[in-house]
Amino acid sequence: MSMYGIDPEETADALDNAAHWDAAQLMRKMAKEITDLEARLAKATQPSADDKWATIHRLVSWLDQQNGRKQEEIGLRILKLAEEQGEVAQAWIGYTGQNPRKGTTHTLDQVAEELVDVIVTAAVALTSITDKPDVFLDAKLKKIAERVNA
């Protein structure tokens, strides 16, 4: 089934059953083309790791232009992590419905979005103190991978 809710294979099978062999073949060809296009579109819209870091660097440059990059500003960027982590906690509590007065107030997707905010905020803070945040992240991930695989 395509992302548009169309199942060309099912339609082609129905056409086969209705003795419309040419139309069924055409539907199968179209189904393959749709699948190929969807795969290319998905790949094209997935930024590479380099693109992600470039976005973080642009964000840091923008913040630097707005606020400068003195020690106080870097400290505030690091403290922003605590704020974002609090939003993750709030979303998780809302997802689980832990507060009986409020009930379920968040979805799992909202929790995921808040977690991404933490990741981006951490990347901004890291990029604010080093020009090579990717090197630090890669080194840490390598150590973790070695520990897990040990």
Results as ranks from 00 to 15, higher is better:
Ile74Val: 14
Asn17Ser: 10
His57Met: 02
Asp36Phe: 07
Leu15Val: 01
Lys29Arg: 14
Val116Trp: 12
Gly68Lys: 01
Met1Ile: 02
Leu141Thr: 05
Ala89Met: 09
Leu141Tyr: 11
Val148Ser: 12
Leu41Ala: 08
Ala139Gly: 01
Trp62Glu: 13
Thr107His: 10
Ala150Asp: 15
Gln110Tyr: 04
Thr107Gln: 07
Ala82Phe: 04
Ala139Arg: 05
Leu26Trp: 12
Lys70Pro: 07
Glu72Arg: 05
Ala82Leu: 03
Leu141Ser: 09
Ala44Phe: 12
Gln85Ile: 01
Thr55Ala: 15
Leu37His: 11
Ala82Cys: 02
Gly94Phe: 07
Val116Pro: 09
Leu41Phe: 09
Ala39Cys: 08
Glu83His: 05
Arg58Cys: 01
Met27Tyr: 13
Lys70Val: 14
Glu83Val: 10
Thr127Glu: 05
Lys43Glu: 12
Tyr4Trp: 06
Ser128Trp: 05
Val120Leu: 01
Val135His: 10
Asp7Gly: 07
Ala122Tyr: 11
Leu81Cys: 04
Ala19His: 12
Arg69Leu: 09
Glu9Met: 10
Asn149Lys: 15
Leu59Ala: 06
Asp134Cys: 00
Glu84Arg: 00
Leu126Tyr: 06
Leu37Ser: 08
Ser128Met: 06
Gln66Cys: 11
His20Cys: 11
Met30Asn: 15
Trp62Ile: 06
Tyr4Lys: 12
Pro47Cys: 02
Leu76Lys: 14
Gln110Met: 07
Glu146Leu: 08
Gln85Leu: 12
Arg40Leu: 14
Leu126Gln: 04
Ala44Ile: 04
Thr96Ser: 06
Leu108Gly: 03
Lys132Gly: 06
Ser128Tyr: 04
Ile144Gln: 07
Ala39Trp: 03
Ala31Asn: 05
Lys102His: 08
Ala23Ile: 05
Glu114Cys: 06
Arg58Glu: 11
Asp51Asn: 07
Gln25Pro: 07
Val135Gly: 03
Gln98Glu: 14
Arg69Trp: 02
Glu9Asp: 10
Thr104His: 14
Val118Lys: 00
Thr45Asp: 09
Thr35Asn: 15
Leu141Phe: 13
Ala91His: 00
Arg58Leu: 02
Leu141Asn: 15
Gly68Ala: 01
Asn67Ile: 07
Phe136Trp: 12
Glu73Asn: 08
Glu38Ile: 04
Trp92Thr: 08
Ile34Ser: 07
Leu108Lys: 01
Glu10Cys: 00
Leu59Val: 08
Ile129Lys: 09
Lys70Phe: 14
Gln90Pro: 01
Thr107Leu: 12
Glu10Trp: 06
Asp22Tyr: 03
Gln25Arg: 13
Gln90Thr: 09
Gly5Asn: 06
His106Gln: 14
Thr45His: 12
Trp92Arg: 02
Ser2Ile: 01
Asn99Phe: 06
Lys142Pro: 01
Leu37Pro: 06
Gln71Phe: 10
Asn17Asp: 15
Asp51Gly: 05
Asp16Phe: 02
Glu146Asn: 06
His20Ile: 01
Ala14Val: 01
Ser61Cys: 10
Glu87Lys: 00
Glu87Asp: 07
Leu26Arg: 13
Asn17Cys: 03
Leu141Val: 13
Val148Leu: 11
Gln71Asn: 11
Trp53Pro: 00
Ala150Gly: 11
Arg147Asn: 13
Ala14Arg: 15
Arg40Trp: 13
